[in-house]
Design a binder for these strands. Structure first.
Lengths: 154, 154
DNA sequence: TATTGTTATACTCTATAACTATA
DNA sequence: TATAGTTATAGAGTATAACAATA
């Protein structure tokens, strides 16, 4: 009704306005994570693998015989959380557990042939997913971003 | 037994070695998100609020009468996801729904007095949490990080 | 005693699908 | 027809607690 400048008129705040929230680093990390999560899920829809599952496959491939506790340590996962990931991967016959010979408390994890195959396919999807992500940055920026993110989780 | 350089001897790969995974941007975003999530949870243990809940409180405070669909749009949430957040906040009497007068399909969201109080406390926790996060960066770095993360989720 | 794995349980976030009311 | 909200349902990640086996 009156002058458009009145506060009651709900001055047109743009769709991206977040009322101060946009100054919070943690907020941006969460939103960026969400965006990456969604694109990852789309890219891996056919393979039906999650980020965590792919990371676990990758690490067991790189460290054959790794224990659950060590896998969890490198991926920043709780023992119980690691269990659920490994359980799922084992149920799909991508991974198998063997009792460690050097320490009977530990499980030694290995990829099955199916797991090796799944990881090979996953690597191609990761390349695609990373290309989508990296398209926003110069090589120098990408490097700087990784380095700064590492400072947070290390 | 034999020479320590043999591959079978499991050459001592440092605890931080991730076998190539450390070159993937998406991987670092996920780990950084996890670290931030955990610190946030600790910081907000007394208040018993999650990141999403705080963001929702903040936005409803900044945009009184905002609709659920609009709240979800700004926080990149699905309609159903937004419902669960608002439900929880309403159950704790931090937020209330009113039917919009201009469009009866929409709910208008407002903070209750309790919600205003909770947000005030939350802001102090956020400051603490952000200080923990920002301690790793110079002012210029923090700015650059936010800008790069925004490129991902925008 | 400490560590590793296991099971049970619970909560949050996320999403899909189907339905209702309103535009 | 399209939009907004709602409900039901489900899967994934995260975590705590308690227990067994092993070191």
């Amino acid at each position: 009704m009156g002058a458009p400048a009145l506060t009651d008129d709900k001055a047109p705040r743009p769709p991206g306005d977040l009322g101060g929230l946009e100054g919070i680093i943690g907020f941006h990390i969460r939103l960026a994570h969400g965006a990456v999560y969604r694109h990852f899920t789309e890219t891996f829809a056919d393979l039906d693998l999650t980020q965590k599952q792919v990371s676990a496959l990758w690490l067991v491939s790189e460290f054959p015989g790794i224990s659950q506790i060590e896998l969890g340590r490198r991926l920043r996962m709780d023992r119980a959380t690691t269990m659920t990931i490994v359980n799922r991967l084992q149920a799909r016959a991508f991974m198998r557990r063997e009792r460690s010979t050097s320490d009977a408390r530990k499980q030694a994890l290995y990829l099955t042939d199916g797991g090796v195959e799944a990881l090979a396919k996953a690597r191609r999807c990761i390349a695609q997913h990373e290309a989508w992500l990296k398209a926003r940055f110069t090589a120098g920026e990408a490097e700087k971003l990784v380095e700064m993110l590492a400072r947070i989780h290390e």
